[in-house]
Design a protein around this nucleic acid. Structure first.
Lengths: 302, 302
DNA sequence: TCGTAGTCATAACCAGAAGTTACCAGCACG
DNA sequence: CGTGCTGGTAACTTCTGGTTATGACTACGA
């Protein structure tokens, strides 16, 4: 009969590339693991792995099996989590994924609050770009995401926390620096600096620029907002900063001017996302209160 | 460690109502099953069943666990099916659900074709109303549905087979009986007979009648089209029949007249539906060809 | 080119878990 | 108040999943 353990073994093999490493990861010996895999293959009457020289290959049929095995394991994981949180919610591990353009501006305020409110919760933060986060969510590697809801999120359940308006960031001596407000159309013909590929913020800012007729500077793409801001301050061009990022010390450069947009204000929506099938949806909704409260204090501070 | 077998046991208990019956269904003895359930409850640290006098009750927490257990089992089932069909497709059991207003007009033509084309396929037909079918599909009790796609189908994958136009069925001596075509508005003020509650066809016909201002006869609701047709023929009122049902002998009553609608023709769409996650989506799409071919011959015959 | 260090498979053995039979306790019902 | 259902407990058996020890094969470096 098919067993959960067998499925854990084969996914471990795919994850680690060799039987040996998988066996270690599963805390069993290699022959034991081999036997189980063999048994599963016999049962399904198909070969999952091609035992090759120096490396294990996944057969086409095995590919399908592995994908489904992971779904089974997620469902099992969810069941166990459901059991835990039905008796004592806000307990155990919670793997949170956050995008880089949000993490540094929200987490410092939120994490302590979470620790205080739910000491039994073991929060584990992973930072990555939206597509990786979404994939990890679907694979069950992450439980909860904190990101911009405008990006494609598959069929995750989402909950908006707050809106994060974009502001125009530009050198103090720029012609627009004195303005009380700017319109998107004011950007026409300007040189803008953007983040490197992968950041959803880049895509959002880029679409604003395209609409407005601004031109991205060709030879530079910042790897983070922290590197982007000094570039703008030093006169290399202007950029769009989410309001969330404008209250942090790095943005308080004396050579940097910040001008809000007039309506309609370009913005992004920061929120939480989780698997629709997650047993902890209720907990996440409750956590959301903490998140938006903390984010508000961050934004008001300064 | 949680095991698939344990999950099978607890779902069997819910399905059969007692430990004893569940044990029989699982082909194990009751103590063996009891021990496993106990073990699972210890592991999850919650009570799934309330062992009561004469009957087993499911606790609230147990409710949640059982739902998730079923999801796991569906995922496992899908995995095994994926294995089977990746090596030899169109093999093994295929549980097909069909609505009553379609089954008698499509299955007689389709089933023999299917048997001939895929002799290794063990087709098992279940007849029920749409909501039951959809629920069974989601629970993994059925694999494939044949029904009208207008009804709410959850998030199943669907594939339209053909359109099934409604026709006006009425007594030979009715004032509209001689018409070449009728408009929906011609129904205004007429007495119509409909199927009993639960049939999606009833809902569809009813909405046409409401639009047209026709009135349902209060004291009679037919349990099937076969009982409905003679009622109309005997002058009790008129009704809407799907074209699919008008070619069968029962509808060829000499006291019954059939008049097609002019455009826009009211109609339903007959199609297949299956779980999006089903490993056999490809097989189902291929089966669809057989179904629509067979349905066409049915409709052209006569 | 020949060890060496990896790979996975095989074989023999062991321990524990899952299943069995046999029995007991409680409750419903005629 | 027995009879016939429940499900639980206990002792025994079976088997399966695990172990260690070993072997065959490949890649790679001395």
């Amino acid at each position: 009969m098919t067993t959960i353990r067998q499925l854990e073994y084969i996914t471990a093999i795919e994850d680690h590339g060799t039987f040996q490493a998988a066996a270690d990861a599963c805390h069993v010996t290699q022959p034991g693991l081999s036997a189980q895999v063999r048994q599963l293959e016999d049962l399904l009457e198909l070969q999952i792995f091609e035992r090759g020289r120096k490396r294990v290959l996944v057969t086409p049929a095995g590919r399908e099996i592995l994908d489904r095995a992971r779904r089974v394991l997620i469902a099992v994981e969810d069941l166990q989590q459901a059991a835990r949180s039905s008796s004592k919610p806000f307990t155990g591990p919670l793997r949170l994924g956050v995008i880089p353009t949000v993490a540094p501006f929200v987490l410092p305020a939120v994490l302590p609050k979470v620790r205080r409110a739910y000491p039994a919760l073991r929060l584990e933060v992973h930072e990555a770009h939206t597509p990786e986060l979404v994939q990890a969510l679907e694979q069950g590697t992450l439980d909860l995401l904190l990101l911009a809801l405008e990006a494609p999120l598959g069929d995750a359940a989402t909950l908006a926390l707050f809106e994060d308006a974009f502001m125009l960031a530009l050198p103090r001596d720029h012609r627009l620096a004195g303005r009380k407000r700017v319109r998107e159309s004011d950007l026409a013909g300007e040189d803008v600096l953007l983040l490197e590929d992968g950041h959803c913020l880049r895509d959002q800012a880029l679409s604003v620029c395209n609409r407005a007729g601004a031109l991205e500077i060709g030879d530079f793409r910042a790897s983070s907002l922290t590197t982007l801001v000094p570039m703008v301050a030093s006169g290399a061009g202007l950029t769009l900063l989410p309001a969330l990022a404008t209250r942090t010390s790095a943005a308080l450069d004396r050579d940097l001017a910040l001008v809000p947009f007039s309506r309609p204000v370009p913005k992004r929506t920061i929120g939480l996302a989780w698997r629709k099938t997650s047993p902890r949806g209720d907990e996440f909704s409750e956590l959301a209160d903490l998140f938006s409260a903390a984010a508000n204090t961050t934004r008001r501070r300064s």
